[in-house]
Design a protein around this nucleic acid. Sequence first.
DNA 1: ATTTGTTTTAATCATCTGATTAATTCAAAT
DNA 2: ATTTGAATTAATCAGATGATTAAAACAAAT
Lengths: 212, 212
Amino acid sequence: MENRIEDKKMEQQLPSTEEKIKEAARRVFTLKGYAATRTRDIAEESGHNLALLNYYFRSKEKLFDIIMMENLEFFIRDVLGIINDAGTTLEQKLELLVEHYIDMLVQNPTLPIFILNAVNTDPKGLIDKITIDSLLDQTQLAKQWKEMAAKHPLPINPLHIFLNVLSMTVFPFVASPIIKMKLGVTDDAFQQLMQERKKLIPIWVKSMLQIS
Amino acid sequence: MENRIEDKKMEQQLPSTEEKIKEAARRVFTLKGYAATRTRDIAEESGHNLALLNYYFRSKEKLFDIIMMENLEFFIRDVLGIINDAGTTLEQKLELLVEHYIDMLVQNPTLPIFILNAVNTDPKGLIDKITIDSLLDQTQLAKQWKEMAAKHPLPINPLHIFLNVLSMTVFPFVASPIIKMKLGVTDDAFQQLMQERKKLIPIWVKSMLQIS
DNA sequence: ATTTGTTTTAATCATCTGATTAATTCAAAT
DNA sequence: ATTTGAATTAATCAGATGATTAAAACAAAT
C-alpha cells in the first residue's frame, strides 16, 4: 500500500470489471433490446464470467434499469443547458439543439431505437422514469417562445413544431437500416446527409413558423 | 347434419382456428416484438392450445415471418397505386400519400415500431424481404419529380424531402407513448393532432421545396 | 506467514420456452 | 357402422436462460 495514490489513479483510468460489464451490457442491450439480450451475451461481450453479472448487479433487470437510466440521462444531458441559456435567441437555440442532437446521434445511432422500443413495450413503468419535468414550462426556451407567440400568434398547435424538430432529427437514425439497404445509401453518404441536416432542419422549421 | 350448408357458411364467416391464431400472433408480435413474445402468449391470446401453433405454422419463426410479410405488404399496399397514378399531380400525390399513411397509422399505431425494431435488430436477413424494388425509378412519381427538378433544380439532395415526409408522418406514432405520458397529451388530443398533420405536412413540404 | 475482504470462476439449480408426441374428438366419406 | 383424415388437446421433452452457490485466486493489512 506504498503507492496508494498511483493505484487509485490506475483504477480510475483502466475500466474496472464492473465498468467493463456495464459497457458490454450497454452495447448489447442498446443493440438488441431487453428481451433479445441474454445475460450470457453480456458476459461474453465483457470477457468475464456470467456470475460476475449477478455479483455486481443482482439481476438482468437491475442492470438494464441502470443502463436505461444512464442512456436517458445521456439523451437529455446538455439539452437543459442549451434551452436554459438566457444569452441565446430562440433561433440560436433551435440551431444548437439540432446540431447537438445530430452530433450525439451520429456517435450513438442505436440509442433512439433502444429508447423508443423500451418505451413502447415498457417492461415496467419505465416511462415514468423519464423526467421531462413539468418545470419545462419555466425554461428560457418556453419564455422566449411565449414572447414570440405574443408578437406573431401561431395558428397551429406548437406541439406540431416540437414534433417536427424531433421527427426530422431523430427518425432518419431509426430508419437508417432501410435507408442504407433499400435506397442504396452508403454509410458515408448517410453521414453526409445528416451533416447537411444540421443546417437544413432549422431553416425548414423557421419557414414553418412563417407560413403557418 | 341436416343443415350442412348453413354450417359451412358459418365456418367461412367465422374465422378459422388457423386464422384466429394468426391474428392473435399479429397482435402479440406487433405489440411486444419477436423476442419478448412467447408462443404461450399467442396460444392464450388466441384461446387455443399451444400445440396448435406448431401444428399450423411449424415454428414460432415461421409464424413470425408470415406476420412480418403480411405487415410489410400492408404497409406498402395502396401506396404503389398512389405513386403510379398518371392522373394526379406531384402535389396531389404528396397529399394523398400523407393522408393515406396517417389514416393507416391511426388504425395500426404499433406497426411502425414493430417494423423498425425488426429491421434494426434483424433476427434474420429480414431486411431483404422488403421489396422497395429498384423499379421505383420507373413510377409516375419519379417521372414527375424529374420533370419538376428539370424546371426548378433543387440545391439539396431529394432524399432530404423523402426523409422529411416519412419522418413527420411516421415518427409521431413511434414516439406517441412519450408524447402522451410525458407531455400530457390525451388520446383524443393526439388523434386530433394527427388529423391536422394530414393537411399541414404537405404544406410544410411544399414550402421546403420553394425555399431550398 | 496469517488473516481478511474482495474479486473471479466453475458448477449447479430452477424455471422458462419452443417443440414434439401420443392420444382424443370430430366431421366427412365409404 | 366403419374408416379415414383432419383438428384439438394434455403431457412431456430437451435445451436455453437467469440466478445461486461454494470454492478458488488474489491483493492488502497485520
